[in-house]
Design a protein around this nucleic acid. Structure first.
Lengths: 344, 344
DNA sequence: ATGAAAAAGGGTAACGTTACTCATCGGGAT
DNA sequence: ATCCCGATGAGTAACGTTACCCTTTTTCAT
């Protein structure tokens, strides 16, 4: 095809004629496939350099590989996803695979389109981060393209899983708050339109664990859940609702740091202090949580490790592994100044 | 090609034989190209539905279009980029163009690879957000692929520009601080390895404007700049350095909200209060700045509008426009509680 | 009824790359 | 000297889609 500047893009044929060899030889060199003698190889490499040749991924795609890894994430606003991406990029390093991201959005329909877009583009592998899709749908995708799913709890033999043990993490938070003496502990959870089995979704697990631990400590009557969203606005709205109840909670466990940041804002706006009047805890241990003026108690689930692992597993799968691997990260509670004993 | 599940992906030929028409007719229907009668069209659409056919983007790419828009952004951690992306997605809507993102990273080399990856994948258009590349390089890219560049100030006839008037924005911040009575106003700027003309880079403009306005108000001797990075850690480091000077500044203008958040943390950690001891201002007016417990004075540059506009301009360019458009957003100062008169 | 023009729809050749098959050439073992 | 084998390298046929150029049919004005 003719580029907009009127000059054709350099193709493998141009390199071949310039180096006086066949296109086959050039192809072998750029794939490091061997079967080319040192002299010819050198001529070809010079020609590539000289002409500025770069293989066209679309054409390669037609022959089976695009050297592209697609990552679907709900939205790019959550800094935790940035940790995951950092890990992934580190793992891919100079393997020649290019990570690309698409936004899955907050509805199943949008997510489906995003995933379809990747499949249509023949990516070599797909990483789905906290997807809304049903297991059936994910297996459908995984049958066509090697797939790793992050932050979902179901077991599948068709794709690999990388997840955080949300039950352990949430339990640690609630026990920490109870240990400080809190009884009126509330929770902010996330609303979704997933049709996945509830027990496979991280926010449901965090919420259910919260309820379980409360009941196990005889606090079943104190259970209070606000259903909002895992972002600043959601945490703000959720916390406002919880604070308006009477008696108001002395601690709020937000299912994600982003929501906890919003909850901090709501508490502040209500003229209350953290942790003097209300303790706040989050989940994910994002960089924000560690800032000394926020100092949010949170749960570290090592996003970078998850991203690295996802990358490694995906490469293995692309190389041909067919058995499913499940990698679980053990979360660690990180206590900071946002949680303290309740007011007397 | 045979998919991993052993079943071939459905192709246009399958649809054609199922609907008893030629592949040409099917192609015409999926492209809405006309030249197909209503009866045949209906049969084809049914066949597409029934077989679950989806065009393969790689094959389309070989014929010239991939219906893909590539966006290069330095990293996904900055929430301001999320605003831009939201605007872009809104603009693309159901045009059939799929936005994909790649990380350009913090070095020219990494950014070049990211851009090359998009070009190699034959994306129909490229949006570069705050790139490090030289103007020459961007024009090279733009000659091959329609391009819109965000947040760079040079004028080019080969690509469109969408930018914020950083001079106006920075001037508003510094004048605001001076108006409050501050004299020892410091600035946190960003370090890069760009070889672009300094005056074309947003952080240089913000820093230079800071210096200019200081001098214009007889405060040339008070100029103090910390060179760090536009992220939380950078703002934290920069603010620590500035606060250690004697006498310490009474106000810090961080060139980006992310850095301002870090600066807030540093001030807090030093046992000082905001704005009692030190005023802090940022730039970008991200969602975080608006949270009542942060309440950061900042500059709104309407990221969503920038993203929408970038999308619109790119589509126009893909449709064939060749003249260059330059769209400049006028920034608005948003004052919040993080800035106040200096201590007496 | 006739002719012309428009619409419908098919055939085919690319696009750039790679996997396969095949031919040729040295060189070493017999 | 002969045979065999590995290495080198070329030729060719896909991969799925679309642009272009046909032919055939229908429509409509005369």
């Amino acid at each position: 095809m003719v580029a907009r500047n009127g000059r054709r893009r350099v193709t493998i044929a141009d390199v071949a004629s310039h180096a006086q060899v066949s296109t086959t030889a050039v192809s072998k060199v750029i794939r490091n496939a061997g079967g080319v003698g040192p002299a010819a190889k050198h001529r070809i490499q010079s020609a590539i350099e000289e002409l500025g040749y770069r293989p066209q991924t679309t054409a390669r795609g037609m022959r089976g590989r695009t050297f592209t890894i697609g990552m679907v994430l709900p939205h790019i606003r959550n800094p935790f996803f940035a940790d995951i991406l950092d890990g992934l990029c580190e793992q891919l390093g100079d393997t020649g695979y290019q990570p690309i991201m698409v936004q899955g959005g907050v509805t199943r329909k949008a997510e489906r389109q995003a995933v379809d877009a990747l499949v249509d583009r023949q990516v070599d592998g797909i990483i789905m981060v906290a997807p809304l899709a049903s297991r059936t749908r994910m297996e459908e995708v995984a049958r066509e393209t090697p797939t790793v799913v992050l932050a979902r709890h179901e077991r599948s033999t068709f794709y690999d899983s990388v997840l955080d043990d949300d039950d352990t993490g949430a339990e640690a938070v609630v026990k920490h708050l109870i240990g400080l003496g809190h009884r009126r502990i509330a929770h902010i959870t996330h609303q979704d339109n997933s049709i996945a089995r509830p027990d496979d979704l991280l926010h449901i697990i965090r919420a259910e664990t919260y309820k379980r631990v409360m009941r196990e400590h005889g606090l079943g009557d104190e259970i209070a859940v606000a259903t909002a969203f895992y972002h600043e606005k959601g945490g703000y709205d959720g916390a406002r609702e919880l604070l308006s109840r009477s008696p108001r909670p002395t601690a709020i466990f937000a299912g994600a740091d982003q929501a906890a940041i919003g909850a901090l804002a709501a508490v502040h706006e209500a003229g209350l202090s953290v942790p003097g009047d209300v303790s706040i805890a989050g989940y994910d241990d994002t960089l924000l949580a560690a800032l000394p003026n926020i100092a949010l108690t949170s749960v570290d689930q090592e996003g970078a490790v998850m991203g690295r692992t996802a990358g490694r597993l995906l490469l293995e799968r692309i190389e041909g592994r067919v058995s499913a691997v499940r990698f679980s990260v053990t979360p660690k509670l990180v206590t900071r100044r946002s949680t303290a004993p309740p007011p007397r």
